[in-house]
Design a binder for these strands. Structure first.
Length: 330
DNA sequence: AATCGCCCCAACCGCACGGAT
DNA sequence: TATCCGTGCGGTTGGGGCGAT
């Protein structure tokens, strides 16, 4: 397809780039560098828009780009970052040297998202996606993303550990669901917990209760973490933030403070460590102190604005990054 | 062999943002 | 302060490849 050019009516080419055009662009940038994308095509003898040239260079011709399949490590990184950041492809790409936002976006849409939908359909906790990516410290991508493996994993195998050797990246032929490993959650060193959830708006957010429990259990969407803390869903949605951060009915009169401007930052920086010093009747003093800090509504709203709507994350042990999502009952 | 439908991905589009004037 | 311009980002499109029929 051709379009009229700016002032001199030279037709602008669109569509797939030819090898000749690629060579012109490479040669020009190699000789002269990038100084102005809008002026570059004319100077380089290309009948393209500056935008098209930029896209071609950034996404395909740049010498530092990797080409070919994503490695397991890259897939793992994409999944983790997408779960925390949402569709911030450029930010995700910045963490993957040699990969472009466009490439990652395409890979996500073509492979990972589709797989997630299937997993979600088999999820006993309907509505969750990220709950499938609980990762134990000793396992690699197979556990982070079990369905990447060729072997079929029984959907009823809650707690079962995939044992496949090397998962095939991009081969998601298995349609069986992956499942949460509660046991692996309990292996956290120092029983530390690093959380927060700023998901959704006031009408759709789930409240969570936080209480101390002596045993593992797994019922009604509640989870006992590391034999210590229990995060439990409330079916009723949050109707107000006036009582502060909606962690728990028990704690709703306590306030939470954050100067973070993104969920990712909160997950990175706000670490609540509940060590063995807690007693069964209450929260650790550290957690107590954390929750008692003044909470700014503006801070929360700021976070809300910035948060991906799908984010419902609790991170266990920030150094290992265990993403976890609670089901939403609404 | 021909046709159809689906999938992937390179490329495009619209919009937002930031710097310059 | 308002406007313009260049750039970057994320969503969407459409053409080609490929398997199924």
């Amino acid at each position: 397809m051709l379009r009229a050019a700016h002032s001199d009516q030279i037709p602008l080419k669109r569509g797939t780039w030819t090898a000749e055009e690629d060579q012109k662009l490479i040669s020009y940038i190699t000789r002269n560098g990038i100084w102005n994308w809008n002026s570059l095509p004319r100077a380089a003898g290309l009948s393209r828009t500056g935008k098209s040239c930029r896209l071609r260079w950034v996404n395909y011709l740049r010498p530092d780009l990797k080409h070919g399949n994503f490695s397991n490590e890259e897939v793992e990184t994409i999944i983790k970052l997408q779960l925390t950041m949402g569709n911030r492809w450029s930010k995700i790409a910045a963490r993957l040297p040699g990969r472009t936002d466009n490439e990652i976006k395409n890979f996500w849409n073509a492979h990972l998202k589709k797989r997630l939908k299937k997993v979600q359909a088999n999820d006993p906790f309907q509505g969750t996606i990220q709950s499938k990516f609980v990762k134990s410290s000793e396992d690699g991508i197979g556990n982070l993303f079990p369905c990447a493996q060729k072997e079929s994993i029984p959907a009823e195998g809650l707690g079962g550990r995939p044992t496949s050797s090397e998962p095939s990246v991009g081969d998601f032929s298995s349609s069986s669901g992956s499942l949460i490993e509660l046991e692996s959650i309990g292996k956290l060193e120092e029983d530390s917990i690093d959380f927060l959830d700023f998901s959704g708006d006031a009408q759709s957010s789930c409240q969570r209760s936080l209480s101390v429990g002596p045993t593992h259990s797994f019922c009604d969407g509640s989870v006992v973490l590391g034999n210590q803390l229990r995060f439990q869903h409330c079916i009723k949605p949050c109707t107000s933030y006036s009582t502060g951060f909606p962690i728990s009915p028990n704690l709703s009169t306590l306030n939470f403070s954050s100067t973070a401007d993104s969920v990712a930052e909160i997950n990175q920086n706000h670490v609540i460590k509940v060590k063995n010093s807690y007693d069964s009747q209450g929260l650790s003093s550290e957690l107590q102190n954390f929750l008692e800090k003044p909470f700014s509504v503006d801070d929360l709203l700021k976070v809300e604005d910035d948060a991906p709507t799908s984010t419902n994350l609790i991170w266990l042990d920030g150094s290992c990054s265990y993403p976890f999502t609670f089901p939403q009952f609404y």
